[in-house]
């Protein structure tokens, strides 16, 4: 169960999507999200969906992996779908029962929203699946660097993010270990009332907090020993370059974006 968490789970590969500059990927993902939200009608959205599908195919991410990242969102999709289905009162009603009624507009909005959310999740998961967390924070730092002029500590924020991402697997492993240790002492986390189960988390959370603080302190010390002093004057081992793949991706996205806008105007 604990291994199912997919935050920052990078799936190594050599596809064109993997090879793109992470900055370009972030910008294009943002553009993609805008694309999904500006499309007013189902045709525009289908263009967005086609974009998602094509990018997904190019990235060669296994379908199974994608389903795994969609699974936790499923309840939200179903919930919004149901809300739209029953609470939109405009349009031709299909049937009516007491206060409940389902209209054609309700059905189309429900489908529309579901497709939009699914595309949104797939698109943004593609970003994290094809980009290593380190590349991602590097790119964020570079993209936000203009904010340094107004005294936003961009480097420090990026460093914090890198560290947080770096420690997710470590913490998961640690949690697993502590859980096993407490289970070996007969801790029961799977049965009982909600209150009982919440209480059963204490023997796991306390040691986890203690070790996180210990780790943080050790890391800070190790960084200081290596004379870390923030971003000023710091050079990078890995320079980011825009390449042909990125220009192609920009054009590709622009074409689809234009398609969405044209469809919005026409229909």
């Amino acid at each position: 169960m604990i291994k199912d968490i997919t935050i920052g789970q990078y799936f190594p590969g050599k596809s064109p999507v993997h090879r793109m500059d992470p900055r370009a990927k972030i910008l294009l993902t943002a553009a993609f999200i805008v694309m999904l939200f500006v499309s007013h009608n189902i045709w525009g959205l289908l263009v967005g969906a086609a974009f998602t599908l094509v990018t997904f195919l190019i990235s060669r991410i296994p379908l199974k992996l994608m389903f795994k990242s969609l699974k936790p969102i499923l309840p939200i999709i179903i919930f919004t779908g149901l809300l739209n289905l029953f609470f939109i009162k405009t349009g031709e009603p299909y049937f009516k029962w007491k206060i409940f009624q389902v209209t054609d507009e309700g059905v189309s909005t429900a489908v529309f929203m579901a497709v939009r959310i699914i595309c949104l999740i797939i698109g943004s998961s593609l970003l994290t699946y094809t980009t290593s967390p380190i590349d991602l924070t590097d790119a964020i730092e570079r993209l936000l660097s203009p904010l340094k002029k107004i005294k936003v500590p961009v480097h420090e924020l990026a460093m914090m993010m890198t560290i947080a991402l770096r420690f997710i697997p470590t913490l998961i492993e640690e949690t697993d270990k502590i859980m096993s240790a407490q289970k070996a002492r007969g801790a029961d986390m799977e049965t009982g009332s909600l209150m009982k189960r919440a209480k059963a988390l204490i023997p796991i959370l306390v040691p986890l907090f203690v070790s996180s603080f210990r780790r943080a302190e050790e890391l800070a010390l190790a960084m200081e020993c290596r004379c870390y002093h923030g971003g000023e004057g710091r050079t990078r081992m890995k320079q980011l370059h825009l390449s042909a793949v990125d220009f192609f991706a920009f054009i590709f996205t622009a074409v689809f974006f234009a398609g969405v806008i044209v469809l919005n105007i026409l229909l």
Partner: peptide, 9 residues
């Protein structure tokens, strides 16, 4: 387990 003191709570 190894380093069992890390499980004290």
């Amino acid at each position: 387990f190894q380093y069992p003191e890390y499980q004290l709570f």
